[in-house]
Structure formats: structure tokens, C-alpha cells
Simulated assay, not measured.
Amino acid sequence: MEMLIVVAIIAILIAIAIPTFASSLNKARVATDEANIRSGYAAVMTEILTDEAHNVEGSTTGTAPATFTLKKDGTVSTTAGDDAYTTQGKPSDNVEIAGKSVNKWEKGQKVTYTYHYDTNTIDIAVGAASSTPDVSTGK
């Protein structure tokens, strides 16, 4: 009988510990995502400031926005490929990154940055490449 009580107590402690551990693990993954997104933002800024093709003062490309995708190695590229970074965690609310509000995301989504020549600003999007919501799915 004593052995059953000890096993029951251990089972209760495990039932309490597993959700706490899972929550802590998700928080760590979200923190990693935030750091990677922030790093990608800095990479976009560097790309815009150093590359003549994206430099506003020396540009002849017009005002069409430039879109960059975050890659696994922390760099950014104007072409999306198989080496795109995908998010690892799932935040419970919107996140503030580099002074921008980033909508909460799901695990496994890609990160894109859109540079607007006319306003000289960068938008951060996680998930779908398009910023237009899909009415049929509500996303």
C-alpha cells in the first residue's frame, strides 16, 4: 500500500512538472526566434546601407519595395530558397522587435522583411509572404 502511495505522489509531481517544462522550452524557442529576427533586421539594414542596388540615394530602381528572407545562417537574401529560417516557438502574443510590432506566429513559419524606398522603413512579417489576409481562411 505504501508503495502505491509513493508511485501516486511521483505521478502527480510528474504531471505538474511536464507542462511547466514544456512552457519553459517554448519560451526559450521564442527568445531564440526573437534574437534571430532581430539579427535579420540588422542584416537588412546593413544590406540596404552597403549595397548600391538598395541604397536609396544612389538607386535607380524606383520605389518598388525590396523583400528579403531570413536564412538559416542569419543572413538575408532577396530570393527565398530551401535554406530559409523557420520559427521554432509559438509566442502567446505579439512581439516587439527593433521597434516594430510583429504579429504572433506559429512554429515553422518563414521570416520576411520588406524595405519601402518611399518611406525608408522596414516591415517584419512572420508567416505568409503576403501581408494581405486570406479571407477564405481568416489568416
Rank of each mutant, 00 (worst) to 15 (best):
M1I: 07
E2W: 07
E2I: 15
L4Y: 09
L4H: 05
V7S: 13
V7R: 05
I12G: 14
L13Q: 01
I18G: 03
T20V: 15
N26T: 05
R29N: 12
V30P: 04
T32I: 09
T32R: 06
T32Y: 12
D33I: 02
N36S: 13
I37S: 03
I37W: 02
R38V: 01
S39C: 00
Y41D: 02
A43N: 10
V44S: 03
V44T: 13
M45F: 01
E47M: 11
L49G: 11
D51N: 15
D51H: 09
E52Q: 14
H54A: 07
N55P: 01
N55E: 05
T61L: 09
T63N: 14
A64G: 05
P65I: 04
A66R: 07
F68M: 03
T69C: 05
T69L: 07
L70Q: 08
K71G: 05
K71V: 10
K72W: 00
G74C: 09
G74S: 09
T75F: 01
T75L: 10
T78L: 08
A80L: 08
A80S: 14
D82E: 15
T86L: 10
T87K: 05
T87A: 11
I97W: 00
A98H: 03
S101I: 11
G108Y: 03
V111T: 09
Y117L: 01
D118S: 15
T119V: 12
N120V: 10
T121F: 07
I122L: 08
D123V: 03
I124K: 01
V126M: 09
A128P: 04
S130G: 11
T132R: 10
V135R: 08
S136T: 13
K139C: 09
